[in-house]
Design a protein around this nucleic acid. Structure first.
Lengths: 374, 374
DNA sequence: ATGAAAGCGCTAACAC
DNA sequence: GTGTTAGCGCTTTCAT
């Protein structure tokens, strides 16, 4: 039923190898022949079978993308960007969801390995050593984690957390809570480290609560804990948790930001829609997706021309250069943070019809990270 | 580098076909041999090359999933469910995003056709006839659209819209606006049709505004229009638009639900987090994803044993039975709808610390659709 | 510039 | 129960 290279060959009166060349090395075929073949292919509706091609070239033109949780709004923009970039380069993306399960991650890498030219490992929860091991099976690009020796793209959440803490300290907060993320998260460790240092530098005390599931519920469940802990400000692992926490505090009658300030991380679309609008550290997720695809593809196209043209030179020291890209983050100050304690006038705040603040006056930026490559 | 079936054969001292059988028809091989082969395969790290297998079996064990916009929070749960169900059945999912572009849809079907055993076409914007045509190239299951002759899974948005309108009419609204969705959306047409009928039946007037992009911005942009139109209630094509509209109205000083009631459709996670919490028609998106995968796979496994065992019987009338599944929807009443006009006491509503309603008292359900097959 | 032939990794008759 | 053989659709030497 499906039309193959042979049908096209027959129709255009050439050998199949000529048809093949027409598609994979057009310059090697006579322009006239090429046109004729192309025409036949066109109206037979011929499409090269990529699987068959892959069998011999070793290139599937597929990329695997392993995600902790597609339903977490942090990821879709990243997926979308990766998919777009990949398609733009004539690649397709396999998406797999691990449900935050480290076991699933490993299994999925194995399952995908043969079908793809490389895998984008997003926010992995497994160990570094396992990642390294897997990278010997299939080219890997790690997102949201630094693994030495492997290409990575991370957001500078350290800088982001620092800015957030400085922002809170600047508002007079001296007892700050940190809702950490899931166990195994590089990002969570980074945040904790940076936040701890920044708090110390600012003379504030940091109370770490966690680890927690990186979900709205994870935040919500901590509301009472936060209330009892006596902190006046909280930095959450991500926006979802921050939003959940605000919900939870609200239910306890604790007002944000009057009683407690809350800062999130990610700047998902949602954070502009909740009330109060969330102060958060914006992470460039789309850029991360695009960059990761580019890095993988570059690595991919570099590979084949490795030991070629090299006479009997030194033992091919040209190990692939594995870049580590760090993307900038930016603190976006909205309405969920305010001066510490007594400053607000309880009861008067947020009354009915028009509690409209200057409404997001052009995204005041506060800090940035830097770009680094190694 | 990669270990093939031949390596395993050599290691276990059998012919490659035995190894092959061990994986694709274990019952045909001597238990002892099987164990030995499996052991060798195990510690050589052998994984069957699915592409090579597909070349001969015609089954790739891949499914294509074409989505209008991954970043639209309506879709991730569907993707996640589909992916999970697929993996559970040992299939992988290719995800592609069309950016709401009908052209991209067609191209993507073509691009995926050879790589997958079937395609899930989600919320297609292209024409029915084109869909039918494409279905001759690759098995299709259509989601969120009814196409006669093709397997479909749709949500009963008609029933949902009806319930929504009845709810509004019951609250005394007689001038109701409908924010329609994107051109080419089956769902949008269904909603419009059902909402129109329900409004007529309830003695209310329905003003249709659209088509519109199915995004937050699409709703936000309509705020002024809604305000001027004089309607006291609005049903939006989806939650995103409803939320955008509320934002927009809020900016104009129009209060929801005191001045205008707003109902969304979908019940995305977000709609529980905005203020006011959104009254909306819940659609079972995860179920839709799972069901679609099941339908595709069933069709897929049915296909091969078609003209087999049939003596010289009648001309194989056994055309595949294409089911059309309709999933129930449910009106979830929250805080964005209220009595028409004068009923609310402006200014007193929603004051500071504790404007807590009975907080979602167990999801009052109001209506359901039915399940149908053809 | 084009044809011939080998073979990618695997499965599927068909023998034995 | 297992080995033999042919070939899926395609690319890629190697001749011509």
């Amino acid at each position: 039923m499906p039309v193959t290279i042979r049908d096209v060959a027959r129709a255009s009166g050439v050998h199949i190898s000529t048809v093949s060349r027409t598609f994979s090395a057009p310059h090697l075929v006579n322009p006239e022949t090429r046109v004729r073949v192309l025409a036949c292919a066109e109206d037979l509706g011929y499409r090269p079978n990529r699987a068959a091609r892959a069998l011999i070239t070793g290139r599937t033109h597929n990329i695997g993308l392993i995600i902790a949780d597609i339903a977490n709004p942090f990821f879709p923009p990243l997926i979308k960007a990766a998919e777009g970039q990949a398609r733009h380069r004539d690649y397709h993306i396999f998406v797999a969801d691990t449900n935050e399960d480290p076991m699933a991650e490993e299994e999925l890498v194995h399952a995908l390995a043969k079908q793809v030219d490389g895998v984008l490992l997003c926010s992995p929860r497994m160990s570094n050593s396992l990642i390294e091991q897997l990278s010997r099976e299939v080219p890997l690009v790690v997102i949201n984690r630094q693994v030495t020796g492997l290409p990575c793209v991370v957001m500078d959440v350290g800088q982001g957390a620092r800015s957030a803490i400085e922002h809170l300290v600047g508002l007079g907060h001296t007892a700050i809570g940190l809702l950490s993320g899931p166990r195994g998260s590089w990002t969570s460790r980074e945040i904790r480290r940076a936040a701890g240092a920044a708090a110390r530098a600012g003379g504030a005390e940091l109370t770490v609560l966690g680890p927690n599931p990186p979900t709205e519920h994870g935040g919500l469940a901590l509301a009472e804990h936060v209330q009892r802990s006596g902190v006046t400000a909280v930095l959450a692992y991500n926006d979802l948790m921050a939003i959940g926490l605000i919900e939870g505090l609200d239910a306890l009658g604790v007002r944000v930001p009057q009683d407690v300030s809350v800062v999130g991380i990610d700047d998902i679309a949602l954070s502009r829609l909740t009330r109060p609008k969330l102060t958060t550290v914006a992470t460039p997720t789309a850029a991360a997706g695009r960059t990761a695809v580019d890095m993988l593809l570059q690595q991919d196209t570099d590979a084949p021309r490795g030991p070629r043209g090299v006479g009997r030179g030194t033992a091919v020291g040209a190990r692939r250069t594995t870049a580590q890209v760090m993307l900038q983050t930016e603190l976006v100050i909205r309405d969920s943070t305010g001066p510490a304690s007594g400053a607000g006038s309880p009861g008067a705040a947020r009354v009915g019809p028009d509690p409209h603040r200057p409404a997001d006056p052009g995204r005041p930026r506060a800090a940035t990270g830097g770009a680094v490559a190694s």
